[in-house]
Design a protein around this nucleic acid. Structure first.
Length: 275
DNA sequence: ACCCGTGTTCGCTG
DNA sequence: TCAGCGAACACGGG
């Protein structure tokens, strides 16, 4: 699931599910110790039980959940990792398949943090001082929230010899851009993902800046619906090039989509359209 | 059995 | 000193 669009959907869902609500009880699976590091599952549950929900922000792929407990601010930083998701169930429903933490609310709902691979994280942030968390402080401006300044993007690309697709995934530059949307943005901008940053012309940088934002907005639009209770997987591949090795390019319809490996991750592109 | 994986972090290296 | 690289993390799914 999770790059910026998926996390944005999660944020919207969570806002709806938690508005005005309090946490009645928390269960954290003891086997999922890794999810709660550097704290423990027990300490995490103890810290947030009884809290009332406040604002929920998203920066890149991070969810910043503000809580209030005994009149004092408290925060939870949530990251979905590779396979994390937030699901809403009713009290008494069976646990979701890879449920790692369960938050019982005062309206009878139970929010599950579900995560197959255990790369997700739930972390208590004392006083909700998110800006003191190094991983949050290191993030650049959120591209959806604040837009992308082509001049700033150009500067950043010029300062690094990394292939442009790899550079786009730097969370300090463009928080929220991950492996899928980096490929998708390069395709939309017609830029070869293997190009080195400094080789890009200003008009290509500008195209990239626009392509990143529109790719993410499309991703969000695809997933939002009138009655989302939770986002399901499965179904047709919604992406233009990602996961489409060997298929005909959706733009030129002549070349075949190629897959290459960059920085240990798969990159998909059209060798004819992307220069 | 084997390869793959929508993410991040850490230790090493040149 | 530090950008860049590769491994590690953990566990299915195909």
């Amino acid at each position: 699931m999770p790059e910026l669009p998926e996390v944005e959907i999660a944020a919207r869902n969570l806002r709806e599910w938690t508005a005005g609500r309090s946490i009645v009880r928390v269960e954290a699976s003891p086997t999922a110790k890794y999810v709660f590091r550097p704290s423990s599952p027990k300490a995490f549950a103890r810290a947030v039980a009884g809290a009332r929900f406040g604002e929920i922000r998203r920066i890149g792929k991070n969810l910043l959940v503000s809580l209030e407990r005994d009149g004092a601010p408290l925060g939870v930083l949530a990251h979905l990792g590779m396979t994390g998701k937030w699901l809403r169930r009713e009290a008494g429903d069976p646990p979701t398949r890879f449920s790692r933490a369960r938050f019982a609310l005062d309206d009878g709902a139970v929010l599950h943090f579900d995560d197959l691979r255990l790369f997700g994280r739930l972390r208590v942030v004392p006083g909700a001082r998110f800006d003191e968390v190094p991983e949050v402080a290191a993030l650049g401006p959120d591209p959806l929230d604040r837009g992308i300044d082509p001049a700033a993007l150009g500067d950043a690309l010029r300062r690094s010899k990394l292939p442009v697709k790899v550079r786009l995934m730097d969370q300090a530059l463009l928080p929220g851009v991950g492996n899928i949307y980096a490929s998708e943005a390069c395709f939309r901008a017609r830029v070869d993902p293997r190009r080195k940053g400094p080789s890009l012309a200003p008009r290509e940088v500008k195209a990239l800046a626009g392509a990143i934002v529109t790719a993410m907005k499309d991703g969000i639009a695809r997933q939002e619906g009138p009655e989302i209770t939770y986002v399901e997987e499965g179904g047709a591949n919604p992406f233009l090039v990602y996961g489409r090795e060997g298929e005909k390019c959706p733009r030129c319809r002549r070349a075949k989509i190629q897959r290459v490996v960059q920085a240990q991750r798969s990159t998909f592109f059209c060798p004819r359209c992307q220069r």
